[in-house]
């Protein structure tokens, strides 16, 4: 009986072995893709910050210019 259980356990362990070589290889690839995506997100964030802070929006289309606004209040 004990021998049967040991054999059974062995089979089960083989079938659902957690770490197969392919998992290790996939992990490396997935971590790489993850890091690249994270880098891309950071780059877009920094780029947006730079664009917003370095763009002069006072003369953007649809923005009332200062003299016109002054005239309106007079």
């Amino acid at each position: 009986m004990g021998h049967q259980r040991a054999a059974f356990t062995g089979v089960v362990l083989m079938a659902i072995r957690k770490e197969h070589e392919i998992h290790t290889r996939r992990r490396g690839r997935n971590v790489g893709v993850g890091l690249m995506l994270a880098g891309f997100v950071v780059l877009v964030m920094v780029l947006t910050f730079v664009k917003i802070t370095s763009t002069d929006f006072t003369n953007a289309p649809g923005t009332p210019s200062l003299p016109a606004a002054t005239k309106g209040t007079n």
Binding site: H20, E21, I22, R25, R26, G28, R29, G32, V33
Partner: peptide, 14 residues
């Protein structure tokens, strides 16, 4: 199962 063609090589990031 370790020798099935689909698992022989899986492309890496490199």
């Amino acid at each position: 199962i370790t020798n099935t063609p689909a698992m022989e090589y899986e492309a890496q990031l490199g």
